[in-house]
Design a protein around this nucleic acid. Sequence first.
DNA 1: GAGGTTTTGTAAAGACCTTAATAAACTTCC
DNA 2: GGAAGTTTATTAAGGTCTTTACAAAACCTC
Lengths: 395, 395
Amino acid sequence: MGDERAVGTPVLRRLNTASVLRAVRDCAPDPVRLAELVKLTGLTRPTVGQAVEDLVEAGWVQHHHPAAASRKGGRPAVRVSLRGRAAPVLGLDVGPHTVSAGIDDLAGRRLAAVRRSVDHNRASRVLTVVDAVIARALEEAGLGADEIAAVVVATPGIVDSGSGRILLAPSVSGWTSVNLSDHLRDRFRCPVRVENDANLAALAVAGERTGPGTLLAVQWGERLGAGVVIDGRLHRGTGAAGEIGFIRPPGRVPDTDDGRGPLERAIGAEAITEQARRAARAHPESVLRDGPIDTAAVFAAAAAGDAVAARVVDDVARTFAQAIAPAVLVLAPDAVVIGGGVARAGTVLLAAITRHLADLTLTPPDVGISGLAEDTILTGALRMALDDVWHQLPA
Amino acid sequence: MGDERAVGTPVLRRLNTASVLRAVRDCAPDPVRLAELVKLTGLTRPTVGQAVEDLVEAGWVQHHHPAAASRKGGRPAVRVSLRGRAAPVLGLDVGPHTVSAGIDDLAGRRLAAVRRSVDHNRASRVLTVVDAVIARALEEAGLGADEIAAVVVATPGIVDSGSGRILLAPSVSGWTSVNLSDHLRDRFRCPVRVENDANLAALAVAGERTGPGTLLAVQWGERLGAGVVIDGRLHRGTGAAGEIGFIRPPGRVPDTDDGRGPLERAIGAEAITEQARRAARAHPESVLRDGPIDTAAVFAAAAAGDAVAARVVDDVARTFAQAIAPAVLVLAPDAVVIGGGVARAGTVLLAAITRHLADLTLTPPDVGISGLAEDTILTGALRMALDDVWHQLPA
DNA sequence: GAGGTTTTGTAAAGACCTTAATAAACTTCC
DNA sequence: GGAAGTTTATTAAGGTCTTTACAAAACCTC
């Protein structure tokens, strides 16, 4: 129930120019003929002409040389395209081991991508790397910090979306005491947002899917987090939505004081390998006996038919399914998509989870693996930054 | 990202008349002076005048006699108010034991309220009662079926929101084979929607709360259901969202083949009394030994300090908290509100649930009891019907 | 009953979109 | 190489709606 106010004729114009800009964006990065925009928007030629003129003046779109391809008679068309450099956005993924930065232009073209690892995950050291990565990315894109139109930073832990403060982040020592948000706000004059990494990964995964719907996107590695995306919008709740790592699974869970949640301690990557090691010791016939054990090895052994490994995988899948089943029943998501290090191991786990979930829920969701590579979180951060820019258009 | 199209000046007018109508509604049921509407909408006088003229002609608002109260000098103001009879809506709550109907006008005034019990919950019998209740409600309101602008029906079970078919409804035998939606569509010429009762109850509870936010509204009686309302909008997911009755709680759950879910069998009203009975047999010192045992008696005994009853209540609360904790972690709702028969028992249960949830979640939500009386579901149905009418305004 | 106040009503002006007609530029065919 | 044809841009006129400004009306108070 939007509360529109004070509608005059100028508002109409803004509405129409926005409509034209949307059409131009949908065609990005290809240039569009003006006549095509008329068809796409349903507006008339003079209106579109006026709007394009305004947009060019404001710097959002740019003219193209008419001396291009695909002429088939007639006066040469004026063609325009999104002027990406009008509002480039910066995405940042601050992980416990690596820091990555990316710069996209409005059209979604990647202008820069930088990745650097952090040796010691001490907060002060991380901050230094963050600054270095940003500087390198800006250099690569040939941009100044002033030209960036939006910044979104992904970080582990729970983030207060209002202030941008990090409330809880066990994986990086001292991270909560650093006001990352303020630190970056000084460097940029545009809005800076800090957001939970699993949430941003969810946004990236949702971007791969078309149409509305509910998505539960899980990031599964050493730690375990999730994001909820409903009809393309991220669901935050009171702020800590998606923290599945703190679900308490049935059965005993080892105590640790590293701030990890019960489910993380039960089926995080480390717990999986630990279970496999124990199983291998108890069952010398397993191939797990040979070679080093990591999650990839466990899943590979299970896929190859090793009964002991299969048992471990099934246990993990069951625990996971039991843990999220209540949430699946309440949310009734269209899909549960798993990303992160564990997901890369393969489809053995997937099948087991699907099986168990079908048993525990009424309308079992599709269970899939994220098709996105290592930069899922970064992609999500850039996506949110672009969305931000796009929503404050009329400014 | 709404895809606006073909915007001309007529659209502007529609926008403004809609804005004026909203303002009139917000003042309902009191009449509004025209000058006041100017302030409320931020539009100019001629615009408001034009809009009001159009709305009167369309029958949405009506003029008031100027010979009314509170004059303080000046030309007598033209006053208008929402013409409720323009679009009265019908709400229906088809429960396993009772059928209720209500008719509200646009201003939210209750024009009729009818409630009738059903002896045998056979589908054919229920349908007869439904028809009778509708007829009585229409008579009471002095309206014909043709004048109703929207109908929303609440029913237990899982409802396909597209077709309105009832997919799963164990509590009424033969209910799934009845196409309630088609049955009613023949009687009314307006849209008829069938919706899960817990979802509508959630909508009603959400109406009591102000502002945006996430709400998990639980209906807890013999059966157990919930609705999720996010920023005022009902969340459906793939259709069966909120079915917490089918969450599998830790521990053994008795098997039944009446279609109830595991959590319902574990902590539904019947299960609570059963647990209390067992506890009373084992502990003769409990006051539960005296008198008949129902949920109210159990909660009263616990509130009065009976240790055995308190133990039962705590067990129930723990099971409930454990069951919904994963959903609470994923959704991070602002509040969990409990309604239905069990909730009426008092605040003993509430305190226990709050305590256990605080232990199991990161950002514990407010836990409260629905302040709405028996007609929560009916209220929700009427609310959704009103929302429906309101959203198809520009037609 | 005169003055003041509050509100309604009306007319002119400005802004924007739309329709329609005209001009321009390029390709293709003869 | 010129004429016909096609596609597109430009310009002008017309209509609708909002805004601004001003006049009229009705009522209360002094």
